[in-house]
């Protein structure tokens, strides 16, 4: 039971992190200049962006919960189970970031989810 709570935390915190970081980068805009000065300026903007900071916080929560979960459960259960995050994150992108997710993209994400579950067994 606690393992499922920890697993849910890993998946939801990871999704929150990705959504937040993605939102932050969308606000910063496309990265299309790669001169040293432009990259340094970009790094400063990224470091100052609160959504990216929030995203890194959630990613850290997900990471440490993952470690805590590994201390209690087998990796052969934890690793495939976290593959469900591909579906959860697609849902989050669809409903929180209002991305357009076509049927093809849904099918692809679901198949990738299944594949990652199998490969991490």
């Amino acid at each position: 039971m606690i393992n499922f709570l920890l697993l849910s935390t890993v998946i939801l915190a990871g999704a929150a992190g990705d959504v937040s970081v993605a939102h932050g980068m969308k606000r910063i805009g496309e990265v299309n200049r790669f001169s040293l000065i432009a990259l340094v300026r970009l790094a400063v903007r990224i470091a100052k962006n609160k959504y990216i900071g929030l995203g890194i916080f959630w990613k850290a929560v997900a990471f440490f919960t993952f470690i805590a979960l590994l201390a209690r459960a087998d990796l052969s259960w934890v690793a495939p189970a976290t593959a469900i995050s591909f579906v959860v994150e697609t849902l989050a992108a669809r409903y929180l970031l209002r991305e357009h997710v076509s049927t093809t993209r849904w099918a692809g994400a679901s198949i990738v989810c299944l594949g990652v579950a199998l490969i991490s067994l």
Partner: peptide, 10 residues
């Protein structure tokens, strides 16, 4: 910054 999260992840 270039593409959707629902594209980048998978």
């Amino acid at each position: 910054s270039w593409a959707d999260l629902s594209f980048v992840l998978p």
